[in-house]
Amino acid sequence: MKLLSKLTAAALVTGTLFFSNTVKAQTTPANAFRLGLGIETGLPTGVAKIGTTFTLGGTARLQYGISNSFALTYTMGGYHFFQKENPATGKRYPSYGEIPIKFGFKEFFVPSVYVAGEAGIAYEKLEEGWGPHRLDLSPGIGWANKTWDVSVRYENFSGANQDYFGMVGLRLAYGFAL
């Protein structure tokens, strides 16, 4: 079932890429690099809800405009999952973070409004060392102008032993041309 969901999402992203060439919303300059530095917050989903209350992090996103409405992205940064108290023991659950490295796209379908998709790998940082690395898939929608970028997305971290979790995140970024 999970594999079918991931294949469906990949097919939708691919279809969007191939059929979106007729869109003429001119928001991202073609053949130009932009850098966005963002602060992010979110609510955990899946098994992360058991031991954490919210997430906070920061990311840097490099963007290259393929056309005036389509850009490729490279994002990396880090998210910290803030732990909550275990009601059975009275102690806090262990603290951890995720360090994502993702490639993706932004498609502006009307001026300043875009859909985005990213895929990559996330490295888990535990209190006692490094945890497993996970597949990181992240669809989203946002608004951007020449300086600011605000987006909402779902970030899914999935591992080999079916221990998936994620977050619903909000990103506020300051961007500038390079």
Rank of each mutant, 00 (worst) to 15 (best):
N21F: 07
Y96I: 04
F82V: 07
S20H: 06
V47P: 02
I50H: 01
Y64I: 00
K102H: 10
S69T: 05
T55M: 05
V113D: 01
A71I: 01
T14C: 13
A119T: 11
A116L: 08
L126H: 03
N31L: 13
K84T: 02
F105H: 02
I99N: 01
N21D: 14
Y123N: 08
L126R: 11
F103L: 15
I99S: 04
T14K: 03
L62C: 01
E118R: 05
G58C: 11
S20Y: 05
L62A: 09
T52E: 07
V113G: 02
K106M: 13
S67K: 07
G15N: 12
L17H: 10
I101W: 06
P94W: 01
G104Y: 07
E107P: 00
V113M: 11
P111N: 13
Y96W: 13
L17C: 13
T41I: 15
N31G: 08
E98I: 12
G97S: 10
V23K: 10
F109L: 15
P94E: 11
G104P: 02
Q83H: 09
T16V: 12
R61S: 11
T59M: 12
R34T: 01
I101S: 06
T16W: 01
I39R: 00
G90V: 06
I66E: 01
G36N: 10
F70D: 02
E40N: 13
F54T: 09
Y96L: 07
K106C: 03
E85A: 07
A122I: 09
M76P: 02
L37Q: 07
P29K: 12
G65R: 03
N21R: 13
S95Q: 06
A30T: 12
G42E: 07
L35R: 05
N21Q: 14
F70H: 03
I39W: 07
G51C: 00
T55K: 02
Y79A: 04
I39L: 15
L12I: 15
V115A: 14
G90H: 05
Y93M: 00
G117F: 12
A71P: 00
E118N: 15
G42R: 02
T16G: 12
L12T: 13
F54Y: 14
A71S: 10
G58Q: 10
N68D: 14
G42S: 10
I121T: 15
F103N: 06
K24D: 11
T89Q: 03
A48F: 03
A122C: 09
G104H: 04
F105T: 10
T27R: 00
R34S: 07
T53N: 10
Q83T: 03
A48Q: 05
G15S: 12
Y123K: 15
F105N: 01
Y74A: 11
L72M: 13
T52L: 02
A119G: 13
L62V: 01
E107M: 12
L17A: 13
G77S: 10
G46Y: 01
K91W: 06
V23N: 06
P100L: 07
E40Q: 14
A116C: 14
